[in-house]
Design a protein around this nucleic acid. Structure first.
Length: 425
RNA sequence: GGGGAGUUUCCCGAGCGGUCAAAGGGGUCAGACUGUAAAUCUGAUGGCUAUGCCUUCGCAGGUUCGAAUCCUGCACUCCCCA
């Protein structure tokens, strides 16, 4: 177990900016410390973009310190302008409460497996009772405007057409106060976050010095972006979420499998707990035999297990085998439903299979795999139609009960990747 | 206000009385190849109860055995001159 957390971060490329490294090391060397990172509940689930911060906290735990995860029930009502080009829409209190609950659950699930004591706190708990005048006198008074205006998050927004509202402008005061509050309540003196958080973190450090004459520390890690410049965790069809109801374990797994080599290497470094020598040998394998995609596989495995558990990983792997050609058989309806969670399905009357059966052409059209029956015919003629992953070349093919996998399901496929379930009830 | 050009299938764009469901390109889909990448190559690409039938070429009428193609009116777009 590494005790020098800061060096551990550095060796994995996780330090973008930090306050004085010597002071930081010294504080962390003093025993079991508390280190915090904040999560704003903008949705009822975290997504892949939050994994860096979650992993930072796991590393904190692994180094023998206690991770503190702050869920922004209060700050979430305002919206962080950092790294944003436009004013946020405010969430309703009900939405926010649901989001807080969802995010808290995920954070606990991921951090508690470290075995270390985990603190999950909600800044609404200490912000709620604070009056506006009180806040201005106790906090606002100690933050110079020049300092606030100097932050990148504010400057960049002021230069834009949209500007920013007073509300979002004030966001950093809340986060600054959070830091000071946590240093009071938990003796938590280190805050970590993405590089876009530097302004907010230093605001808290300043405030701690002015208000408490206390030394607070901060580390930011580089934002994880893909080689093509897009944000990590965003796909054409939307974000990759940690909640299996939003993103199935299979799609989550596949996201990592499909990363290009450089991105996969960086993610393995920053998002997994693989030891450094394992990373080195993966890098060697990547150069020697890129086609094997060992890094992607290992990364997908580690992260899927972390987020969805051993069971989720098994399901994702099973789905992967099937999606890449394995014939389908011996799976019951429940397993099929789980594996094909992302796949559109369409229900038919059971009786459609009786007699001559249901023309494949019709099934392809009804499930949306083909836009029209003509298109369905074409697909079949060109060898792109599959039932239970067996290619069907006969345009006149009719589906019969004997072909069902499970008791009521047929897996239809068009081309390499488009699947649909036909369920006969 | 005057003069000119145009409106074609998902997009761009040819067609200018029958051989037009309409060239070519793009896109899309499928196949081969491949690392579940990129590129490349091949095929397909209005619909259907399908060797035929129906619908499509701005809209509405008309001429003709027959119109995306000719005529009339209408709508919209663009350019030039005032």
């Amino acid at each position: 177990m590494t005790h020098d957390l800061f060096s551990n971060f550095q060796s994995r490329g996780l330090v973008h900016q930090s306050t004085d490294p010597d002071a930081l090391r010294q504080w962390l060397a003093g025993g079991s410390r508390r280190v915090y990172a904040g999560f704003d509940p903008t949705a009822d689930s975290l997504h892949v973009g939050h994994l860096v911060a979650l992993m930072l906290l796991r590393r904190v735990a692994a180094a023998g310190h206690e991770p503190v995860a702050l869920v922004g029930g209060a700050t979430g009502m305002i919206g962080d302008p950092s790294g944003r080009s436009e004013e946020r829409n405010l969430l309703s209190p009900a939405e926010l409460a649901a989001n807080v609950a969802g995010v808290e659950r995920q954070i606990r699930a991921i951090l508690e497996t470290t075995g270390q004591t985990v603190h999950v706190v909600n800044n609404a708990d200490w912000m709620r009772g604070v009056g506006y005048l009180e806040f201005l006198r106790d906090v606002g008074k100690h933050v110079p405007l020049s300092q606030m205006l100097g932050k990148d998050s504010v400057k960049s927004r002021l230069e834009r057409d949209g500007g920013l509202s007073y509300t979002e402008f004030s966001y950093m005061l809340l986060q600054a106060w959070d830091f000071v509050h946590l240093s009071d309540a938990l003796d938590c003196r280190v805050q970590i976050g993405g590089s876009d958080q530097w302004g907010n973190i230093t605001a808290g450090i300043e405030l701690g010095r002015r208000l408490r004459a206390r030394d607070l520390h901060g580390i930011t890690c580089p934002l994880l972006t893909k080689a093509d410049g897009t944000k990590m965790g965003k796909t054409a069809s939307g974000a990759i979420w940690l909640d299996p109801r939003r993103t199935s374990p299979y799609r989550f797994y596949q996201y990592w499998i499909n990363l290009d080599d450089d991105d996969a290497g960086r993610c393995a470094e920053r998002l997994t707990e693989l030891p450094l020598d394992a990373l080195t040998s993966l890098a060697a394998l990547r150069t020697a035999n890129p086609a094997a995609r060992d890094t992607q596989k290992r990364l997908a495995e580690e992260l899927t297990r972390l987020v969805h558990g051993e069971q989720g990983l098994t399901a994702a792997r099973q789905a992967t085998a099937i999606f890449f050609g394995a014939e389908i058989g011996g799976l019951d309806d429940a397993a099929l439903a789980e594996i094909f969670a992302d796949v559109p399905s369409r229900e038919f009357a059971r009786t459609a299979l009786d007699g001559d059966g249901l023309p494949l052409v019709e099934a392809l059209e009804a499930t949306g795999l083909a836009a029209t029956k003509s298109a369905a015919r074409r697909t079949i003629e060109q060898g792109g139609a599959y039932v239970n992953n067996r290619r069907i070349n006969d345009v006149a093919h009719r589906l019969k009960a004997a072909e069902l996998s499970g008791t009521a399901t047929l897996v239809l496929r068009s081309g390499k990747k488009s699947y649909a379930l036909a369920r006969f009830l």
